[in-house]
């Protein structure tokens, strides 16, 4: 049974602050080889950590690693050197493994609370009556429609596809409506982005497009980003891409009126559509608006923008603001 060698792996990419260069390399190689990006641990068979995680993030990555079903392989890539070889080695490891280790076909693990990336740590829960199988029960709180409904705790990040590296958002949700949100930043920053601004814009755009469910446009954005980084981009292709996305009404539907910020926020002012347009301007060749680093302001504004929104909107808000924690000097906050 050499089925794993024959098929392309699905990769859960873990971005780490200060690991941007590695991530860009990994994503380029994945695209060239046709490896798909996984949406959740259950979906993945290859875990790729881009950069050197701090202790907290490392522990979270290890928990996620335990959630991957076998056959699985892991590649920790701390530096940009030898990315392709490390990926190859992980891939080979995946193919060598027999499909069903230790004869267990359905692993039923008993994770500690907070073992899943979507499960919060115990300290965020305040009042629960009892717990079942080690997991606390839901509690109740008033909601926006005047009903008192069960609420669940949910932690977004640090291991989540299409999510800014180092960002952790703790949510209390009722159904999929966010009641409270708290923002934390994990890990240490790296250096400033010194690549072309169009590549940075395309990188942010790809995350936004992916979260909005525009799969093909995401692939195209990543491809153009790699071309810009390699210096082989065709300005006409960039223009065409920007023009097509400006015309897309389904994309506008997903971003209109989402995450509105007032005029004090410089180039982040307006809703997600306007921020997306600004990226598209940069992609099409206009110089980026100079301004100070707004990451701190974004982190301050984020909880207010998220509360009362649905989960889908939360992802779009975060992706459209795309706080650049990889190069920003913002330290660990909570």
């Amino acid at each position: 049974m050499d089925l794993m060698r024959w098929s392309t792996p699905r990769v859960l990419v873990v971005p780490v602050r200060a690991g941007r260069a590695v991530r860009l390399d990994v994503e380029r190689l994945m695209r060239e080889r046709g490896w798909e990006s996984a949406a959740s641990p259950a979906d993945a068979d290859l875990l790729v950590v881009c950069g050197t995680p701090d202790a907290d993030t490392g522990a979270a990555v290890d928990r996620v690693w335990n959630l991957l079903g076998s056959p699985r392989a892991r590649a920790d890539i701390p530096v940009r050197h030898g990315v392709a070889e490390r990926l190859d080695r992980a891939r080979a490891e995946l193919g060598d493994r027999p499909g069903r280790p230790s004869g267990r076909t359905s692993g039923r693990r008993r994770p500690a609370p907070g073992d899943r990336p979507d499960d919060s740590d115990d300290d965020t829960r305040t009042d629960h009556d009892g717990d079942v199988a080690g997991l606390p029960m839901a509690e109740r709180a008033p909601d926006r429609d005047g009903l008192t409904l069960d609420r669940l705790h949910l932690t977004l990040g640090p291991v989540l596809p299409d999510w800014p590296a180092g960002l952790v958002v703790r949510l209390a949700v009722q159904g999929d409506v966010v009641q409270t949100a708290a923002v934390e930043v994990w890990g240490e920053p790296g250096g400033r982005w010194d690549g072309p601004p169009a590549a940075a814009a395309l990188d942010s755009l790809a995350r936004l497009l992916s979260v909005c469910g525009a799969a093909t446009a995401t692939r195209r954005a990543r491809r153009l980003r790699d071309e810009v980084l390699a210096g082989s981009a065709d300005p006409a292709a960039l223009n065409r891409f920007a023009r097509r996305l400006r015309r897309s009404w389904t994309l506008r539907w997903a971003t209109d009126g989402v995450g509105r910020l007032d005029g004090r926020h410089g180039d982040l002012t307006g809703d997600a559509t306007q921020r997306c347009r600004r990226w598209l301007d940069v992609v099409a060749g206009s110089p980026p608006v100079p301004g100070e680093d707004r990451t701190a302001a974004v982190l301050t504004a984020l909880p207010g923008l998220l509360e009362g929104q649905e989960l889908a909107t939360v992802r779009v808000v975060v992706a459209s603001l795309d706080p650049d924690l990889e190069s920003s000097g913002t330290g660990a906050t909570s």
Partner: peptide, 10 residues
Amino acid sequence: MLMMNPAGLM
């Protein structure tokens, strides 16, 4: 929405 213990965990 309305029930306590909908999953029947207890």
